[in-house]
Design a protein around this nucleic acid. Structure first.
Length: 561
DNA sequence: GATACTACTTAGAATTATTAAA
DNA sequence: TTTAATAATTCTAAGTAGTATC
């Protein structure tokens, strides 16, 4: 694998163009269990009266009941969408009766669900072991496929169970019913000469095809957004690994021509063509601020989020002067997953002047870059460097930032080294705007760590005093030697905890995992660990070590991104 | 060149497993 | 041994970007 990779620096395909495999065999996806009807003693009430629902309506009612503790169920849009879709599952009679969600009492259903969760938690060790083994068996049977003589782990071999759609942010479709997928909805993709997967008894597949220009094993169309879902390989598979490696090689190639590209867009800021100037400013944002490309989206189908090319005039505010700086652009918009991007950035006079011009005679709702879209931008980028698209800048800037931040760090303590690594990782996460909701128990866990630090400090003081005393009495006695060790151990533990506290505080709202998993060339981290004599598993968990096996194999300590 | 469709990567939340503390 | 905290893993939504179709 390594040799083949080295031989084809940017094209890892071992087959002719577009062919992804020669042989693919699998068991098909695993379907979730059938709906289990409610026991007779658990009742749904409408307008104070018990109502026995039909099976289909009951199942959907339970989806809602299970979510009652969630904020979603308080939202107007969610409730309306739910009621509308729920009524579609009802019998005529039920539909006549149930018209107002506020008159629905899901209390007993909700209680039953909570009880079930609790019961599962309280299962005995043996029972849990039995469940575990059963899951293992399912994984063994459905979780793997044969792809070109290799047994590969499948990423998502389980069909998504039915439920209520949970969009992010203000999603217009939140609360809609996500329907149960039947084998009749599923397309199977595999080799003609493989053992074709059997559909569950009494069912047929929608289609069995043999398309080796794609990597998916099965697909179905999801009913809420009408988009396609795929069963694909796990990240640790050869196919995914090669693609990942290729991604980082393209980003490294950008490193060698980024200076030229930057000069070019600086030059383009002066262009007579409005379109060219817009492209230049957009590229400047993408490069400097690591913004996403920003494809257009269908209005009203999803939450209102934007990326670079889809920014609207209301998303930026121009300040001739702000906080002692001139030409400041204030960004405030919702990006992917409705994560807010807020930033105040001083820019060059030329960029600023262009932005003012782009905003002229426009009103709220108008595109900032009205002469530009992601397609045009990427066409331009690909002409500057093969394989270059907007998202490569994120990969490049993330990885180069990590490498720079890690340079010249010195410490002999592993905990301190790890803090430095996490800080470098954090710089990248900030750049890419990878945020998370602060953990629910954050304040509490911070306080308990602080308390531990205090008690350890006291312990250390005490140990120090005792040592002093012991030294006075008899130099070099076994007693004082022992105490010396205690003091040392205390100091180490204290340092470790203090470092941990700093790390955690700084990490409150920042998610490190996304950049680690998707943006940072793993060879930088592997080489750093080797150079700094930090065990790799301090930085990468099992999943990451698996995913980045290719990098762990090939990286020498002198690797430079 | 608009736009619909397809295939794939990237994303944070939710769930589950593991470890540490009580 | 039990419980609570933390870490790992799973889940699936939401992006990017290429191609097909008009």
């Amino acid at each position: 694998m390594l040799l083949r990779m080295l031989h084809s620096v940017t094209r890892s395909q071992k087959y002719e163009d577009g062919i992804k495999w020669k042989f693919l065999e699998h068991k098909g996806p695993y379907f979730p269990p059938e709906y289990q009807p409610l026991p007779d003693n658990v009742k749904f009430f409408y307008d104070g009266k018990a109502v026995k629902l039909s099976l289909a309506a009951e199942e959907v009612a339970l989806f809602f009941a299970q979510m009652l503790d969630h904020e979603y169920t308080t939202k107007e849009v969610f409730r309306n969408n739910f009621l509308k879709d729920w009524r579609k599952e009802m019998t005529l009679e039920e539909r006549m009766l149930i018209t107002d969600l506020n008159k629905c009492d899901f209390g007993e259903l909700h209680a039953m669900h909570k009880q079930k969760v609790e019961a599962r938690k309280n299962l005995s060790k043996e029972e849990k072991q039995i469940n575990k083994e059963a899951n293992q068996k399912i994984l063994e049977e459905f979780g793997y496929c044969m792809l070109d003589h290799h047994r590969e782990r499948i990423g998502n071999f389980k069909i998504e169970p039915p439920g209520l759609f949970r969009g992010r942010g203000d999603h217009p479709k939140q609360g809609m019913l996500k329907k149960r997928i039947q084998p009749e909805d599923v397309i199977i993709n595999c080799s003609r000469n493989s053992h074709i997967p059997e559909p569950p008894t009494g069912h047929k597949w929608k289609e069995v095809r043999h398309d080796n220009t794609v990597t998916w094993l099965a697909s179905w169309t999801e009913n809420v957004q009408g988009s396609c879902k795929y069963v694909m390989l796990n990240a640790n598979s050869k196919l995914k690994g090669e693609k990942d490696w290729e991604k980082y090689e393209v980003a490294r190639k950008l490193k060698s021509c980024v200076d030229a590209i930057r000069s070019q867009y600086q030059e383009d800021l002066k262009s007579k063509q409005m379109g060219t100037r817009q492209r230049a400013v957009a590229l400047y944002f993408i490069d400097k601020l690591a913004l996403r490309a920003g494809n257009e989206k269908e209005e009203g189908e999803t939450a209102d989020t934007v990326g670079c090319c889809s920014l609207r005039v209301e998303h930026i505010t121009l300040h001739d002067a702000l906080d002692g700086e001139t030409c400041v652009v204030e960004f405030d918009f919702l990006g992917k997953d409705c994560i807010r991007y807020y930033n105040k950035v001083p820019v060059s006079k030329r960029v600023f002047k262009n932005l003012k011009l782009f905003m002229e005679n426009k009103q709220e709702g108008d595109d900032l870059f009205d002469r530009l879209n992601t397609n045009m931008l990427n066409k331009h980028l690909t002409s500057l460097m093969p394989g270059l698209t907007a998202k490569v800048f994120r990969t490049y800037n993330a990885s180069i930032t990590l490498q720079q931040q890690l340079k010249g760090l010195t410490s002999d303590n592993v905990a301190e080294k790890l803090l430095s690594y996490n800080r470098a990782n954090r710089a990248v996460a900030v750049l890419c705007n990878h945020q998370r909701a602060p953990p629910k128990t954050f304040e509490q866990s911070m306080a308990s760590l602080q308390a531990k630090i205090e008690s350890r400090k006291e312990q250390l003081e005490l140990a120090k005093k005792e040592l002093k005393l012991a030294k006075k009495e008899a130099k070099g006695s076994s007693d004082s030697k022992l105490l010396k060790k205690t003091v040392q151990r205390c100091e180490e533990q204290l340092l470790k905890m203090e470092v941990q506290a700093t790390d955690r505080e700084e990490n409150k709202q920042i998610a490190l995992s996304t950049s680690k998993l998707n943006y940072l060339d793993p060879r930088i981290s592997v080489a750093w660990c080797k150079n700094m004599e930090v065990p790799l598993d301090k930085v990468y968990n099992k999943t990451l070590r698996d995913k980045f096996a290719w990098a762990i194999d090939m990286t020498e300590p002198d690797f430079v991104f």
